[in-house]
Amino acid sequence: MKLNDWLRLIAGVFVLASVVLGATVHPAYNYFAAFVAANLIQSSFTGWCPMMALLRRLGVQE
C-alpha cells in the first residue's frame, strides 16, 4: 500500500473506533474523532499531516 492508502486507512480506523467507543463506553471518545477530523481539515489547507510524517519515517512508500 502507498502512503495515501495508509493514511486513509488509519484515519478511518481511528474515527470508527472513537465513534464506537463514544456510543458504547463514554461520549468523551467523540472528541478523539473530532481531533482526527480537525487534523484532516488542517492538512488539506497546509499540506502537512503529522501521520504522514510518521509514516514516512517508518519507511512507507509514496
Rank of each mutant, 00 (worst) to 15 (best):
M1Q: 08
P27Y: 00
N30P: 00
A37G: 15
Q61S: 09
R57V: 11
Y31K: 11
N4H: 14
V36F: 06
L58M: 14
H26A: 07
V15S: 03
F35D: 15
A11C: 12
C49Q: 10
L9M: 06
P27N: 01
A23Y: 03
L16S: 11
V19M: 04
F14D: 14
A33R: 01
I41C: 05
N4R: 14
G12A: 02
V15W: 03
I41W: 06
L55H: 05
V15R: 05
G59K: 09
R56W: 01
G59C: 04
P27V: 01
L3S: 07
N39R: 09
T46F: 04
Q61A: 09
N39H: 06
S18W: 03
G22V: 01
A53E: 12
A34G: 15
W48S: 10
R56Y: 05
G12H: 05
L9A: 14
G47P: 09
V15T: 12
N39V: 09
L58A: 11
V20H: 01
Y29A: 03
Q42H: 10
G47S: 03
Q42M: 10
C49L: 01
A33D: 11
Y31N: 13
V36T: 14
A17L: 06
N30R: 08
D5C: 00
L54Y: 08
A53R: 02
W48Y: 10
P27F: 01
V19P: 03
I10E: 02
V19E: 04
A11F: 00
F14R: 05
S43T: 15
T46R: 05
